[in-house]
Structure formats: C-alpha cells, structure tokens
Amino acid sequence: MSPLTKANKNASLIFSAFGNIVDRDRQRLIDMGLVPGESIKILQQAHGCVTLMLKGSRIALDHKTAGEIIVREENQ
C-alpha cells in the first residue's frame, strides 16, 4: 500500500484508506465516491499534484491531499 503520490501511475489502483485528512475534505472525497475498494486511475501527475479518474469524473488534488489517500495496486 502507498500514498497516491508514490503510486505507480500506470497501474490499476484500488483505494484502501484515508491518512490524516480533515473531516470536511474526507467527507467531500467520500461524497465523490472515494470509498474503500473503489478503483481509481491516475490521469496525470505534475509537481506532486494529481488528477485522477474516479467514478467517471476527473478529480484534481493537491500534493498534500494526494499524499493522504492510500491505495494498493489491483493485483496486490
């Protein structure tokens, strides 16, 4: 398992858990469909910021938020 910022960009990823993230932002991500077991795909990574595909939507995250999203590769 690794934070999104260190995940393999080309791998199929599964969301596992949140790290240290404030309730408001955790709630926002949950509402957007980021629940454990959900597949996500990294679209782009630049300077630590990440854009990802989640439930058919493109979500942009800053470096800090992306670092608090723990994922695993699908085949793990």
């Binding site: 993230i21 408001r24 932002d25 939507s57 979500i59």
Partner: peptide, 10 residues
Amino acid sequence: PAYFIMELPP
C-alpha cells in the same frame, strides 16, 4: 490552506 479537491468538468 485548505486541501485542494476539485472536480474538473469535461
């Protein structure tokens, strides 16, 4: 500063 979480529309 608050976290940045934003949906990018198509």
